[in-house]
């Protein structure tokens, strides 16, 4: 069971994780990753902001494709991705990836796979404002490397 949510609003991690395994007593473990906005402002300045732009339609399609790959690769009972867009402040939650399976190995591996792939495939772009200037966050080679390592290992 795959659930994808692309939304402006915040989410409640406790409610989401409880909901993932509710009603399915075959699930033995739930793994999750939560991404947060880091503060990039200089100490003493007004504070930083972040705006997340995305491509409505393609975002949902890509997240669904990534989640489908995970369910084909690992025996998952449930898989959830929530990704926010719009204006965010330091400390705000950006993304939640959660996976549920009979055993921990599938849940933990699938969760790591999902966040690594999401970072290189899902069409989101971060615009950072450190209080003085705005800049588009650059993609990192380390993110590509993290996603690539899933190409030939399980």
């Amino acid at each position: 069971m795959i659930t994808i949510k692309v939304q402006r609003e915040d989410f409640d991690i406790g409610v989401e994780l409880a909901g993932l395994s509710a009603g399915n007593t075959q699930i033995g473990g739930v793994a999750s990753f939560t991404g947060l906005v880091r503060d990039i402002a200089a100490p003493g300045s007004a504070g930083s902001r972040m705006t997340l732009e995305h491509y409505p339609g393609m975002t949902e399609k890509q997240l669904h494709a990534i989640a489908t790959q995970a369910t084909e690769r690992w025996p998952l009972d449930a898989c959830l991705i929530i990704h926010r867009y719009g204006e965010l402040a330091p400390g705000d939650r950006i993304v939640l990836v959660a996976t549920a399976s009979a055993h921990r190995e599938a849940a933990l591996s699938a969760c790591a796979f999902l966040i690594d792939w999401l970072k290189t495939k899902a069409p989101f772009w971060k615009l950072e404002d450190d209080g003085a200037t705005q800049r588009w966050v650059e993609a990192k080679d380390s993110d590509d490397a993290a996603a690539a390592k899933w190409a030939d290992t399980k």
């Binding site: 991404g35 997340l52 995305h54 491509y55 339609g57 393609m58 399609k61 890509q62 990704h83 950006i94 993304v95 966040i115 999401l118 970072k119 290189t120 495939k121 899902a122 069409p123 989101f124 772009w125 971060k126 588009w136 966050v137 650059e138 993609a139 993110d143």
Partner: peptide, 29 residues
Amino acid sequence: VAVNQEYVGKDHKLGTGDEVALFPPVTGG
């Protein structure tokens, strides 16, 4: 480049009704 919301390469053939999106490397998550 994405055509009809799927990633494509530079040699992908285009049709008149396509939705083509151009964007930099993604930075979500």
